[in-house]
Design a protein around this nucleic acid. Sequence first.
DNA 1: CTACATTTGCAACATTGTTGCAATTGCAAT
DNA 2: ATTGCAATTGCAACAATGTTGCAAATGTAG
Lengths: 135, 135
Amino acid sequence: MEASEILRNHKLKKTSPRVAIIEALQSSPLPMGEDEISSMMGSHYDRTTFYRSALTLEEAGILHRIVIDKLLVKYALNEGRHNNAVRSNHAHFFCNHCQKLICLENIHPGPYRLPEGFQSQASEVIIKGLCSKCN
Amino acid sequence: MEASEILRNHKLKKTSPRVAIIEALQSSPLPMGEDEISSMMGSHYDRTTFYRSALTLEEAGILHRIVIDKLLVKYALNEGRHNNAVRSNHAHFFCNHCQKLICLENIHPGPYRLPEGFQSQASEVIIKGLCSKCN
DNA sequence: CTACATTTGCAACATTGTTGCAATTGCAAT
DNA sequence: ATTGCAATTGCAACAATGTTGCAAATGTAG
């Protein structure tokens, strides 16, 4: 789906940084860090704008932010292409050797049985190890 | 168990920062951030030393470092008291309101069925939401 | 007690992210 | 198409967490 259509579907203004972020992520098979997105977006790139745009897109459910470790954050698009189907929660695998982050679409963690009175709003599963290429 | 005994068991030198970190964490029922540990350790506190000591203790399996989100990291002791029993993997709950991190000792995620050739070395489950007090 | 490897403390720097504010831009209404 | 105005951007400054290099201090084995 085109970036402008995604933005329109979520009633967000079509601005160049938003379009650029979406297109950068669409062009990559794997989640990317800010550094990678930045280099794809070229010179006209402001870090504050990136963070604010990414936050807006995250709040709209368009993208997903995964914190692997301090100083290591990756972004991925939620491929909620099929109408507004909320994408099912899935685990992430981080390769300690090649530093790639891979979405494990077929691992659906939870639901978790929380203690009385606790309410879950989001959850994240990160499995670290060696991927098939580095093993 | 006393800090000095823990260090001896792991063949680590007994140094004052290490002892202070262990005692700070022992005195708290919840994992703490660097800021909290720092204020418990008083003035003679160097951030570099803290990070290096925490890393040493983590590598020895004495403590556990949980990244909740960028700019929000908590540390907890692995209570591997009973000999060298590796503490079973457990999930963490982070309250979006009061910012407390709670170990959910009775939620044991995994094992996960990884794709062919992948090898798991560690995993982390963070559930975010509202705790019973803030709900 | 001594030797020596380990650890600490300091300074400088790196990465990721946030806040305030003025200037610009997208878009809806005319 | 033009205009008005809220939303967004870009810049500067700052915040939190963490790393690296290196000289000085410290723990401990012998």
